Computed example of a mutant assay.
Amino acid sequence: MTTNKDAFSDYLQLEKKYSPHTVNAYLNDVISFESFNAIHFDQENVEQVNYGQIRNWIVSLVDSGISNSSVNRKIASLKAFYKFLLKIKQIEINPLLKHKALKVPKTLQIPFSEKEVEEALSQMQNPQGFEAIRNKLIVDLFYTTGVRRTELIHLKKINVDLAKNTIKVLGKRNKERILPLLPIVANQFLLYGQERLNLAVIVDADYFFLTKKGLKLNDSFVYRLINSYFSTVSEKVKKSPHILRHTFATHLLNNGADLNSVKELLGHSSLASTQIYTHNSLSELKKVYQEAHPRGQK
């Protein structure tokens, strides 16, 4: 018999087009609340709970020491579950309808400066061998396209079109977008492609970026790669693929790109997501304004 959780899982995958990883995260959060409810309220049926019971779970999560942002993510999963139950008429009232998310301190994502990027890339001039050529291409691709880490990892060989100097990536909620390649980066694709052909073994042949053993890259590998190259040129706390994506957007805006174009390149569904990158471009704009205006130096 199909349970509400099974139906919820199908809904997330088939209608919402969420990735398997996201679906599992949602279901694990619902199951976590189920377990809490069974232990503390002797009630396994979470379809018939009140907000007081959920509030107790929230308090226990906070007391366990996890961050407010992590608690909010778990509650978002539960809220999505109850919205689904409303949709299929299994409940009449969403117990989380009036819940307000816990406050999360805003953390400013500080991008790399243009000088830091240039210094990182200068370490990689004239790369020799498969790994060095691949690593330089990965850094350049993050910086020149703003691609997400998971999009880079899952880039398929078939979706690299060097005749048109474009790549097609699969973003959040399975949304595809086509990204243009700068000629200098397209040339690196050709160079890497030639080295890739010389691998002794290729296991994950469909994927474009591989390890020297012919396997698809993973999240931690790509994180370590970016962190290692930028650790020598930057003292910023965070040196990750996401910061490089953030850097891509900030540098475009600083150099006159319009917000809508950056939104499309990043694959954001709304301008609100892109506007977080305007903090740094605003400081650059103030600097230019102060230097250029006749009264700016007075």
Rank of each mutant, 00 (worst) to 15 (best):
K168M: 14
S122K: 15
P183E: 11
E44G: 11
D140H: 01
N24R: 14
Q53Y: 04
H268D: 11
L162M: 05
I110H: 08
Q48H: 13
V203C: 00
Q188S: 11
A200D: 13
R245D: 10
N165Y: 11
V288T: 14
N4I: 06
Q194Y: 08
T232P: 00
F221N: 08
K106P: 01
F81E: 04
V139R: 00
L217Y: 01
T145W: 06
R148S: 06
H40S: 12
S35V: 15
K164I: 00
I226R: 01
K100E: 14
I54N: 05
K213S: 14
K164W: 07
F36E: 08
K157G: 03
L181G: 01
R196N: 11
N126L: 08
S261Q: 09
K287H: 13
T232V: 10
L225H: 04
S281D: 09
V30F: 08
S67G: 09
E235N: 14
A25V: 07
K103S: 13
T166A: 00
F142V: 06
V59N: 12
E284T: 12
F112C: 02
F230H: 02
P180F: 06
V46P: 02
K168V: 15
L152I: 07
Y11M: 03
S32D: 15
N135I: 03
F189W: 10
T247F: 04
A7N: 10
Q13A: 13
L12Y: 14
N72C: 08
S69A: 12
E176N: 07
P20I: 09
P127N: 06
Y11E: 01
L266F: 06
T3S: 15
N4G: 01
S281W: 05
V71K: 03
D10P: 00
L155G: 08
K83W: 00
K156R: 15
L210K: 02
G65Y: 12
K168R: 15
H246Y: 03
T2D: 11
F84L: 06
K236D: 03
S60R: 10
Q188M: 13
D6N: 11
V71N: 06
K74A: 10
A101E: 12
I75Q: 02
L217N: 01
E34K: 04
N260W: 08
E118Q: 14
T145S: 13
E116D: 04
E119P: 00
L244R: 00
F33M: 06
F81H: 03
K83E: 14
V104T: 15
R73F: 08
Y289A: 14
L253V: 09
H21R: 14
N37H: 13
L182H: 11
Y11F: 15
A132C: 04
R295W: 09
V71M: 04
A101N: 13
T107N: 07
F41V: 02
K238G: 00
K100N: 11
K238A: 07
L108N: 02
P180C: 06
T274K: 03
A25K: 03
I39T: 13
H99A: 13
L170V: 04
I167C: 06
A38S: 09
E92Y: 01
F112Y: 12
F130N: 03
P294D: 09
F208L: 08
G65E: 10
S19A: 15
S269Q: 12
I75A: 04
D206H: 03
D258Q: 02
L12P: 12
P241W: 10
T22H: 07
F230R: 01
H251M: 05
A7I: 04
F33T: 08
E34D: 08
K74N: 13
H293W: 05
I39L: 14
S77P: 09
R177G: 12
